[in-house]
Design a binder for these strands. Sequence first.
DNA 1: TACTCCTTACGAACGATGTTCGTTATGATG
DNA 2: CATCATAACGAACATCGTTCGTAAGGAGTA
Lengths: 232, 232
Amino acid sequence: MEAEWPRTKPATQRRVLSQDLIVDTALELLGKGSLDTVSMRQVAQTLGTGPASLYAHVGSKEELHELMLDRLLGRLPRPKPDPDTWTEQILEMARAQLKMLTAYPGIARVGLETVVPAGPNALAYGEAVLAVLRAGGVPDREAVFAFDTLSLWCSAFAYELAAVKTGETDEQTIATRSREIAAYMAARPTQFPNLLGVGRILAEATPEERFEFGMDLFLAGLVGAFEPRRTR
Amino acid sequence: MEAEWPRTKPATQRRVLSQDLIVDTALELLGKGSLDTVSMRQVAQTLGTGPASLYAHVGSKEELHELMLDRLLGRLPRPKPDPDTWTEQILEMARAQLKMLTAYPGIARVGLETVVPAGPNALAYGEAVLAVLRAGGVPDREAVFAFDTLSLWCSAFAYELAAVKTGETDEQTIATRSREIAAYMAARPTQFPNLLGVGRILAEATPEERFEFGMDLFLAGLVGAFEPRRTR
DNA sequence: TACTCCTTACGAACGATGTTCGTTATGATG
DNA sequence: CATCATAACGAACATCGTTCGTAAGGAGTA
């Protein structure tokens, strides 16, 4: 039995990295942390290597983040357009989008920061939303703008939610702040005649309620915008 | 004439820092850069000192950012509620909010990340918006939710715009990407029957158009939500 | 005036980040 | 079997937020 000769290079054979593997690992990390925990070093360490190794498959951290978002967008449902139920289809798609964005907290930020979502899945999803809108009779201009508004709304809402989800903003901190605010306003009743009474409505509302309210406004406004006299 | 004796301590007398001065300096930096350029070190260096000196007046970078946002919120107009023109007043306030948020690109992110905006100016502005809404006859619940939706919409839109404004995403990069996307879709016409034709509508639209479209949807939906049969 | 004490200023350092450079090793190609 | 493009990787650089220990200034008191 021979003592092992000290190797100058690691015993394990050369790692086989790939863009898919990196994106997978990054998504796994994102699933249990915020976007900030998905650093080049963390991903590399999870893969048992150093950060420099990733740059052969990914141009930058930003590019990695966009790849992650596109991967997730590929999992969204793309229902077959139905002219009769198009508003419900849009609702369904928006809910799925929000659910996905909050399941991977922090990825919403990528959607907001990416100026032009260029991934194939992003385009396919955009095509799907547009198809439903146009099947519903929404004119070209309104459909495109509505898609734009809808994407922004979902991403923004998910982004706001992510701050709480990831635990980077303590639940107790929120409670403390809310109490401080209430006390601050209560001490100046003449300054806040409106906020004082109704502030708790927002505090007690669930995120789902707030999201649905926005969606209701969006859909009602959209229908009214291109069918202003439907009942006539 | 005597040669100056080398002093062990800096020649300038002790600096007089203050929270206001720090926030002012930070805002000045933000005005000509992104939020990332407003680092503790940059602010300190602009003030001619080290980063540690700031922590006597500001708890953390996050707190500094919130202070900056609150300062800016204090400059927004708070019109006297007018039941006859309340929708125009809301429009005016939203436009002013967007203008401010884009004048200091990157500050919108703070608004999105801050779970509960607690600053006095944030509260005063919320009170003002709520006052206009209620003067217009919007019921309590709808008014509060509408305020929430409106804030999120403005912040999100400004955040998206900031990426372009600060130049951190090159104008040319956008053009290149758009061309790539167009080529990608043109090569797969059966896959993008809807996007292909109307994609350029969005590309050619100005940010103002997109913002106004969202505001139109918002206001139309809001009016319809609590006055569903106004014309009866 | 002399002494004490508390707040502020600040240099230095710690750990972590994204990215680049130069150097190996590997697997395919000729 | 020799060659070579490319992936892997160790080390380093500049930057970041934050903390610690120390020095200095002014206010309050004897």
